[in-house]
Amino acid sequence: MNTLSVKVNRASGGKFQHRKRGNKTKDLNITSLIDILTILLVFMIKNISMDSTQKNSPEGMLLPTTITTNELIESGRAVYLKIYPDKILYGTESINVGSMEDFLSKTEIRNSLLKLLQMESKAIISSRSKPCLLIQADKEVPCKYITEFIKFSAQASFANIYFSTIHTEDKDQILGL
C-alpha cells in the first residue's frame, strides 16, 4: 500500500510538501524463525530430564568422574552435604557450617552438625524411610575430611553413604589414558 508522508519544509517558509513514498512496507517473514524454534523446542523436550538428583549439581565444585553409578536404596531419603575446599554446606538449603579446619578443630561446630544430622535422621526414620547421606565433595579435597564425615555420619545413624560424581561412558578418562 502506498502511503503519503507529510513533511514541513522549513527552508521554503513552512509550506507543506507532499512526498510519495515509493517503497512498499514489507512484512517481516518469520516462518523460518518459527521452523528453527520448533526444532529447538522438540530437541529440548526430548533431552529434558525430570530426575531431581540430576539437577542438583553444586555450583563452583569440581566433582570427580566415574563410569559406574548406583541407585539410591528403596525408600531412602538423601541428606546433602557439600564439601568445598574452603567451606561445608549442609542440606538442600546449603547452610554454611564453616570451613573444614573449623570442623576438625572446633567442638561446637562438630556438635551442632551432629545434632542437625541426628535430628534429620530421626525425622527420616519416623517417616518410615531410610536415612542416606549424599556427600558432594570437590575432587581436590583430602580424604581425611571425607573419613571424618563418614565417621561422623555413622554416629548419626546414617548407614547408607553415597558419593556424588559426574557420570561418563569413557573408561579411558578414568584410567587417565
Binding site: S49, T69, N160, F163
Partner: peptide
C-alpha cells in the same frame, strides 16, 4: 509462547549427568 518456553527449557535442561557411588561402612 516459544519465547517463554525455550528459555524455561534451557534453564531446566540437564547438561551434566550426576551419578552416585555407594559405599558401605
Amino acid at each position: 509462547l516459544f519465547i517463554v518456553i525455550i528459555p524455561m527449557l534451557m534453564t531446566i535442561m540437564v547438561t551434566v549427568h550426576l551419578a552416585m557411588i555407594e559405599i558401605t561402612l
